[in-house]
Design a protein around this nucleic acid. Structure first.
Lengths: 138, 138
DNA sequence: CCTTGAACCTCTAGTCCCTAGAGGAATTAG
DNA sequence: CTAATTCCTCTAGGGACTAGAGGTTCAAGG
């Protein structure tokens, strides 16, 4: 049986975060030692690693809850898991597209000023004040 | 003089958000009508547009506060504005890089399952449970 | 067996940037 | 003048944690 700190080390999830996951019902309340401390088993390690991995991939906790639910019922069909992963992929792709536009605007803005002027002539401040100078929408 | 709703329309910032910006000191408390409603002028439109644009570009409110402060002192040098914009650019670039790695992993994961299996054989669920299958770190 | 120090416990509050709703007052168009 | 719309303040919530206070339990060394 593992203490919470050991579970934390084995999964890379911080101790308060583990307790938070328990609080919101993502992790089942574990057994306790005689003195009342949490004790975890191998199942908890696997479950928490799953959560960690999905979080790293940008899934929200509600999506993760659905995925875990699905994984707990191996006889159900996994169309939902597929749909969740596809939604996540589309979300990531949309964010990349948006960030790349921002990157372009920021490069333009940074190039407008080398930092050596009085603020009155600063290209950065001008660019922020004037959206019309932007190449596209954001 | 503009009512808060008109200011909202002209800047694209929602009414509660404008009040929130006032509360945190990003926008000066405006004058009031006889009945106590906020009345804004052209300066407020410009300032709020500046804020909106910087938010759209992903700047945090504290960075925006610094930028506005700088813009209010046209005699100061703008090295700080330049530094803030560069920091923001680097931040955006780092996020893009990370999201592109995620995109790759997600594509691999989505390809592992067409949604037509029982959950026990689902490639998506397997991939989430097993980080070692991933191409790179995330 | 006892002591020490690390790790654990609960609880509250804070982060960021808003968003939503309740209950009521002011304004504006007809 | 009335009715509809907008405005006011105040409180609470959300996502996903993070930080801190004040106190308890555990494991290892002597």
């Amino acid at each position: 049986m593992l203490a919470i700190g050991t579970l934390s080390q084995r999964t890379g999830v911080k101790v308060p975060t583990i307790r938070y996951y328990e609080e919101i019902g993502l992790l089942a309340p574990p057994g306790r030692s005689a003195g009342g401390q949490r004790r975890y088993g191998a199942d908890d390690v696997a479950r928490l690693r799953f959560i960690r991995h999905a979080r790293d991939l940008g899934f929200g906790l509600e999506a993760i809850r659905s995925l875990l639910d699905l994984a707990a019922h191996p006889d159900r069909f996994c169309a939902e898991a597929n749909a969740l992963a596809m939604a996540q992929l589309r979300d990531v792709q949309a964010r990349v597209a948006r960030l790349r536009r921002l990157e372009g605007e920021l490069q333009r803005i940074v190039a407008a000023c080398d930092g050596g002027h009085p603020a009155a002539e600063c290209g950065v401040l001008d660019a922020l004040a004037d959206h019309d100078g932007c190449t596209g929408p954001h």
